[in-house]
Nucleic acid binder design. Structure first.
Lengths: 117, 117
DNA sequence: GGGTGTGTGTAGTATATACTACACACAGAG
DNA sequence: CTCTGTGTGTAGTATATACTACACACACCC
């Protein structure tokens, strides 16, 4: 059950197959971590790093930051702040749609994005 | 800037004016905290307690849990989990509506709640 | 076979989080 | 004047978070 570690290891290995700049050491340097620490994270021996580091890692690996944060069991602080600013509205909205199927949520997103909201 | 502490102290004092069961000691006992700890929280000398304790406190004080959590700088774990399950959909939705005025978000909430979503 | 790069093992650290336990001083009630 | 309840001060603790520093063994290159 090492979702985060397995995911970034696989992604890094993919990139490494095409470009030598994706060794543990190189990626760790780009993110600003010790190589041994990143290695342990990939193998699930250490918990995922901080939100900040995960965001840089997502950039380096060309992945979506919110997906990577989710795999790490975290939620981006800007989303949390949006909820904290209007807790009643956001809490109700999220609880209302949290069990809806993907297509329904997607339709809602599109409606909001394209509509006159 | 002690939003959480000031808020719960004021609320507790209000209730205490009508009912002796809302002293620091009584409330702390109901929530499951040491009185001195609650006192320090109210005065901002200590950070707000855990999510669990805040939820019990909201119940005891008759307040909305999400509002209290927001004042404590937190977001309920069930909302976070909803986002983590579908990070792409939820992140986009929240970022799309986070700067919309209250009435627009409220209209959206109502539409989702009452509609055939 | 010496240098370079690779992943990883060992052994720590600093800071934050989330509290408890106990004692003290004061106020009002009987 | 003592008992009860009140808020609060002092002094801790356990656990988690988020890492660093350094060394080691192996593999490939020339």
């Amino acid at each position: 059950m090492n979702l985060f570690g397995d995911h970034i290891r696989q992604r890094r290995e993919e990139l490494k197959a095409q470009n030598r700049d994706f060794s543990v050491r190189k990626v760790a340097a780009k993110v600003g971590l010790e190589p041994s620490y990143l290695s342990k994270i990939e193998r699930g021996e250490q918990a995922p790093p901080s939100e900040e580091k995960i965001k840089v890692l997502a950039e380096v690996l060309g992945e979506d930051r919110d997906v990577l944060l989710a795999l790490a069991g975290k939620v981006s602080s800007d989303l949390q702040e949006a909820i904290r600013r209007r807790p009643l509205l956001f809490a109700e909205l999220i609880r209302e749609i949290k069990d809806m199927p993907d297509h329904a949520v997607l339709r809602l997103v599109r409606e909001v994005r394209d509509g006159d909201w």
